[in-house]
Write a protein that binds this DNA or RNA. Structure first.
Length: 437
RNA sequence: CGGGGCGUAGCUCAGCCUGGUAGAGCGCUAGCUUUGGGAGCUAGAAGCCGGAGGUUCGAAUCCUCUCGCCCCGACCA
């Protein structure tokens, strides 16, 4: 993409409404623009990142056996009356009336809708287990939205719902998602810390919140180092030992932290303290919805059984804020490669120089053909402005071409994260980025 | 929802107390000069001073109401 042809409205100064670093940087880097309190337009650069993050979430859900579908944003109130939540949910739920005076709502979550879909489609235990998910915009009319996309009213969420014939199978589904979550967040360059969450009123319920480490995070975390060293690709979600191990390790937010227990159970060298941002939560809730909504299947002996359910959420749009909170420096964003909007920023230091421009155009064409995502700064701007812009938007690599290096047929390759820079011949730079030799 | 703050040019903000022709820096446009870390000079464009009512000869400024946004708290992916 040529920057001259792109839409990237950068801000030199910090907008006064933004207090936290991710919000400021997203605004300044031209990723989002606020439309109303807690409601944002995703500008081209932000949209690209959102799609990258979405795709990683999707791939790991698919890999874990979940099946994607798409439910609507607007739901009939009727289903929520059936589950009993219509009157319970409160003002956070945006209620709408259509022209026929039917009560509708903009979905804050989808348990009712998915249970309805499920009960109409699955009648036998032989069709279980099932795990259905979608990635869809939600709306919760928060009293006080803040921190940009970290706590918006409209937000993109992945929510999955598992259906099993009995508790043992449901718990296995739960830990399968648990492992998928660890993998998902790690792929985004984050350090996930799964924290035991409230078990709720029904005894035996399971829930974990996933926090990702960020110095500016809102919750304090105390945990056993083993938690982050878990190799999720090797765990067997159906093994009771594994389940017990995960369910019992020590990891807590500051609200739940019990110093005495922490010190009793975790040896000093494994005790860790950090700050984090919550980006996901998993629940096992049994028949809480299947019972009232009559989501039953025929069991092996022919008698109807209410299915055992769990739900699994990831705050996809919030993740962008979390990633930036975890990955930035005083110059701007430092994208992990897996979610970067472009892999390379190509800077033409002197557009007026025919040699520079030719060299840039050629390299740009070559990289693009090789499938590398390149943002090519071909604008006629001062050098400092170009470097500052590129640092701000945080692409992992910068290729800098100017008259000085070009005299020796060299391009400068910089790594945003480390600040390292090295001059090399064009072929070497090309191979460096494409992984060729 | 309780408490506080702010709405003036695209952005950051001054002006308001003490009413009298709407300002600065950055950005934007044009030209010239510059060119390896947010360039310089010159000339421009740009604002129903959030909205409505009121007081006054006269309101960005004073009064009333309203809308929006931000911060702290309670609440949440």
């Amino acid at each position: 993409m040529r920057l001259s042809a792109y839409f990237l409205p950068l801000l030199k100064e910090n907008p006064s409404e933004a207090q936290i670093v991710s919000h400021r940087l997203m605004l300044r880097a031209g990723m989002i623009r606020q439309s109303a309190a807690g409601i944002y337009t995703w500008l081209p650069l932000g949209w690209r990142v959102l799609q990258k993050v979405t795709q990683i979430v999707r791939e790991e859900q698919d890999r874990a056996g979940a099946i994607e579908l798409l439910m609507p944003t607007l739901q009939p109130a009727e289903l929520w009356r059936e589950s009993g939540r219509y009157d319970v949910y409160g003002k956070e739920m945006l209620r709408i009336r259509d022209r026929h005076d039917r009560d509708m709502l903009y979905g804050p979550t989808n348990e009712e809708l998915i249970t309805d879909i499920f009960r109409n489609g699955i009648k036998s235990y032989r069709d279980l287990p099932k795990n259905l998910y979608h990635i869809q915009w939600k709306f919760r009319d928060e009293v006080r939205p803040r921190f940009g996309v970290m706590r918006g009213r409209e937000f993109l969420m992945k929510d999955a719902y598992s259906f099993d014939i009995d508790k043992a199978a449901a718990v296995a589904s739960y830990f399968r998602m648990f492992a998928a979550y660890m993998k998902t967040f790690k792929r985004m360059g984050l350090t996930p810390i799964p924290v035991r969450a409230d078990t709720g009123p029904i005894g035996g319920d399971l829930s974990h919140e996933f926090h990702v480490q960020a110095d500016t995070g809102e919750s304090g975390l105390f945990y056993d180092a083993d938690v982050v060293n878990l190799d999720e690709s090797n765990i067997d979600p159906t093994s009771p030992d594994v389940q017990a191990y995960i369910a019992n390790w020590y990891a807590a937010t500051d609200e739940k932290h019990d110093k005495a227990e922490f010190e009793a159970r975790v040896p000093p060298e494994r005790r860790r303290e950090a700050r984090g941002i919550e980006v996901g939560q998993v629940f096992y809730f049994g028949t809480k919805y299947s019972q009232p909504m009559n989501a039953v299947v025929a069991g092996p002996d022919g008698t109807p059984v209410a299915v055992e359910m769990g739900s699994y959420g990831i705050g996809v749009s919030r993740l962008l804020g979390a990633i930036i909170e975890a990955c930035h420096d005083d110059k701007g964003i430092v994208w992990p490669e897996s979610v970067a909007p472009f892999k390379v920023g190509l800077i033409n230091l002197r557009v007026s120089d025919a040699g520079c421009t030719k060299a840039c155009d050629d390299l740009y064409a070559r990289l693009t053909q090789a499938g590398i995502e390149v943002l090519y700064d071909d604008r006629d701007q001062s050098v400092g402005a170009k470097f500052a812009a590129m640092d701000l938007i945080g692409l992992p690599y910068q290729f800098v071409i100017g008259p000085r290096g070009l005299a020796n047929k060299l391009v400068e390759v910089r790594t945003r994260k480390t600040g390292e820079s090295k001059e090399m011949p064009f072929d070497a730079a090309f191979n460096f980025i494409t992984g060729g030799s």
